[in-house]
Simulated scan of single mutants.
Amino acid sequence: MRLLADDVADLLSRAPGRVVVGITGPPGAGKSTSARAMVAAFDGASYLPMDGFHLSNAELDRQGRRGRKGAIDTFDAAGYVAALRRVRTEYVRGDVYVPAFDRSLDEPLAAGHVIPAECSLVVTEGNYLGVPDGQWAAVRPLLDRLYYVDCPAPVRRERLVARHIEGGRSPAAARAWADEVDEVNARLIATTRQYCDRVVEIDEMW
C-alpha cells in the first residue's frame, strides 16, 4: 500500500483542491480491499464505489441482462460520471451522497456513502474506470490518478468462486459465472491498463 500511498500523499500536498483517485482492475483483483485501505490510510478520505451504480435487478430483468450482471452495460455509467463531476465541483460547497452496493441484497443502496464537503481525498474503484469508449470515456479525465490492481488469474478465480458461493450460488454455478461472465469482463478491463498511471500486483501493495 505504501507504493500508492506515497504518490497520493504527494498529490495532496500539491493539489489546490480535492484529489480524486481511481482504482481499477479485473474482478477479484482486490480493488475494494485496496480502496478501503487507502481511505483508512488518510484522515478524512471518502469512498465512492462504482458498484453502487449497478442497475437494479428489476431493471436488469426488464432488459434481459440479469444473467450478465457486472458486464459493462449493466451499470448506470452516466449516473456514475455525474457523481464524479459533483465530487469534483462541489468541494467545500456541500456534502455529496452516492450509492453503495449491498452484497447481501445484491442490489445498489441509495445514499449509502457520503462525501463530506470538506473531504480532501475521494477514492473510487470499479471495473471500467479506464474504458475509453461511450459514456465511460468521461471518467478518466475526472481522476487525478488511476491505478490498475492485478493479481494472478487463479487467485482471482478462487476469490470469485468463493464470493459467488457466499452470495447464494451453488459451487457449479459459481464456477460457471466466474468463467463465463467474470473472465469475459476481465479481458475487456485488461485492455485499459495502458490508460492507468501505474500497474501494481496486489502483493506489491501490502
Rank of each mutant, 00 (worst) to 15 (best):
P132M: 01
G94H: 09
T124N: 04
A82R: 15
M38H: 12
G126Y: 03
S46N: 05
V21N: 08
A82G: 09
S104M: 11
T192H: 08
D95P: 02
D7N: 13
T124R: 09
V149S: 02
D95T: 00
Q194L: 15
M50G: 02
R159C: 07
P132S: 04
V114F: 12
R156D: 03
M50P: 00
D197E: 09
G94A: 09
A78D: 14
A137N: 09
L142D: 09
L105A: 15
V8I: 15
M1R: 07
S104K: 13
A186R: 03
A37M: 10
Q135G: 14
A153C: 05
R18I: 01
D51F: 05
G30L: 07
I72Q: 12
G94V: 04
R169M: 08
R93F: 04
D76M: 09
F42K: 05
A162P: 02
R18F: 05
V184S: 00
Y91R: 06
V122P: 00
T191P: 09
S170Y: 01
A58H: 10
V81Q: 06
R103G: 08
E118D: 15
R93E: 07
L12G: 05
A15C: 12
A77L: 07
E158P: 04
A37R: 14
S104F: 12
C119A: 15
D150S: 14
G28E: 00
G94L: 09
